[in-house]
Design a protein around this nucleic acid. Structure first.
Length: 264
DNA sequence: GCCTTATGTTCAC
DNA sequence: TGAACCTAAGGCT
């Protein structure tokens, strides 16, 4: 379930469980075996996340860079760990905990210069304290591209994926097709502030939760507190706020969901 | 069991 | 624009 919140959550867990002590790093599957040797047995100094990119910094000029892509998943486990099941790209084992990485789009050892280059091509990340939303606004304010596409562009905003894209635009009542430059500064400020709070909830909750209480219309399923969305993957169903049928289209190869009444 | 889908990115054409 | 990557879950039979 990898949007930015997932990766930031992982970084926090890995930092807490592994930082400050040596870890064993291996590749049961083999595809990461050569690179794993470069950091195996070294001290993991810290773990951090930039957008959807996870970094494990070691006590040398090296870091493990992981991008989960659409399938990737970490499985956290107490030691002693069970034998690897299936295709485990990277196994990292510390004193009390270990973790298995499966199906990432990227898992590589890089130096700090490469980390700097990575950061340089990412827009502000709503989950990072030092993020500067003005940097994203400068891109958006002069772009003819639809805001629905701009939000998914990691060089504009880092960490937003298909769910947060759809949900934040719904919550802000913004038509995904509107050109970036048609947004007002006030609309952008509100959108950014909403991303910051929504994604922070995602990190603590361990999942995407965006439905606001004032839109609870007494649906028992909602009362149970199940994680749910307003429009994502709800095409053909009535909008939770106005009842209009939620629509779906494709934008840049990804499914886009929106309510034509609330977002016009 | 088989088929579809997926919260993502990169590369080839 | 489309394929490839590569894994898991859910719906269907």
């Amino acid at each position: 379930m990898p949007e930015g919140h997932t990766v930031h959550r992982l970084a926090a867990i890995h930092e807490e469980r592994f930082a400050g002590r040596p870890v064993r790093v291996s590749s049961p599957q083999g595809r990461f075996a050569q690179e794993a040797r470069l950091v195996d047995g070294r001290v993991l100094e810290r773990a951090d996340a930039y957008g959807k990119h996870l970094l494990h910094f070691y006590d040398v000029d090296l870091a493990v860079h992981v991008h989960l892509g659409i399938y990737g998943v970490f499985e956290e486990e107490k030691t002693p760990m069970d034998p690897p099941r299936g295709q485990v790209r990277m196994r990292m084992v510390g004193a009390e905990f270990g973790t298995d990485l499966r199906g990432p789009t990227r898992c590589e050892v890089v130096d700090h210069a490469a980390v700097d280059r990575l950061r340089a091509r990412l827009g502000p990340d709503p989950l990072r304290a030092e993020a500067d939303p003005e940097r994203a606004w400068r891109r958006i304010a002069r772009s003819r591209a639809p805001i629905g596409g701009l939000l998914m562009d990691q060089s504009v905003v880092a960490g937003v994926g298909n769910v947060y894209r759809a949900e934040v635009l719904f919550r802000q009542g913004i038509d995904p097709m509107r050109p970036g430059r048609s947004l007002s500064a006030a609309e952008w400020d509100a959108l950014w502030a909403d991303l910051v709070s929504l994604m922070a909830v995602g990190v603590t909750a361990g999942g995407i939760v965006v439905v606001r209480d004032e839109h609870d219309h007494g649906d028992p399923a909602y009362a149970k507190g199940k994680p749910r969305t307003y429009v994502y993957r709800r095409a053909g169903s009535p909008c939770r706020v106005c009842g209009t049928t939620v629509l779906r289209t494709e934008m840049q190869g990804r499914n886009l969901f929106w309510c034509p009444h609330c977002q016009s």
